[in-house]
Design a protein around this nucleic acid. Sequence first.
DNA 1: CATCGATGTTGAG
DNA 2: TCAACCTCGATGG
Length: 334
Amino acid sequence: MPEGHSVHRIARQFAVNFVGTAPEVTSPQGRFAQGAAQLSGREMLDARAVGKQMFLEFAGERWLRVHLGIYGAWDFAGDVRVDPSIQIHGQAPGRTKLGQTGEYSRPESARPLDRDGEDSVASIGAPRRTRVRMAESDRETAAPAAFPPEPVGQVRVRLLNELVCADLRGPSACEVLTPGEVDAVIQRLGPDPANVNTPAERDRFVERALRKRTPIGLVLMDQSVIAGIGNVYRAEMLFRAELNPHTPANTIDRSVLEALWDDWAHLLEIGITVGQMMTIDGLSGEEYQRALVDRDERHSVYKLEGTPCKRCGTNIVLEEFGARKLYWCPGCQT
DNA sequence: CATCGATGTTGAG
DNA sequence: TCAACCTCGATGG
């Protein structure tokens, strides 16, 4: 379910809660018992995301690669700290408000969107006894009574240190790799502006795209061309660029492709910070708060088929495209 | 409460 | 091209 922004958020949570500790690694479900044994008791050295994949580095040149696929999720429970660069919204309806201080949900949290985001070297948040599910959207629920909690459902892998327990369920990939194998995987992925956003990286994307006759609507989802974009961001980015999804990539102006990269970098940074795919700019504070809660308020085309385009009034259409659903406006995406 | 569908990818045919 | 993976929120009765 998650697009690139969620995976970066999860990697940051591992950096804050696990890097520098030597967690016990188990596979309550059993399917990953062998891999878990290879990692257990080793210090975690690094946590990184590239596109939709996460890589956790352990001492002894062993890496855990995780891809959440369509319904994978991580649950963090215990005394969880929140990386200062991310906000956690989206508690279940009817649950207690997030954080006694309201630190993560006050309206001013909208502000970083309009700035460049170079300021924060804030200190890491204090641990808070809680449980947070991190997947396509985050959800905070009441802390389990016991620590570590009883595994619920099919837990492929559990990482447990003194303070925090992280459970992985439903991943499409979960495996131990050597450094060389990690390099090979990353080699096959396109650039990710959340890791390196330089003119050279942007050129890498542009050159790869210009070599394809494939429609841009497919190229944007090709993880070897640009990493991290999924079906929602694809549709929304094409709308923002006023681009017909069927346009062959190699017929698009270089400047337009450069703008697509810049827009992805922009949207991805917002997504990482906010934890929601906010794809409409310039919302008022009130609209922004509504967009946090209601998907239809934060998108222009995704799942909005049959409604009038906010830009030109033409009805948004839904089209089967490369085995996925594509939402776009035939009126102004030309 | 049963059923559906999903923000993804792989691999069989 | 499409089933499989195997989770869970949304939807409808």
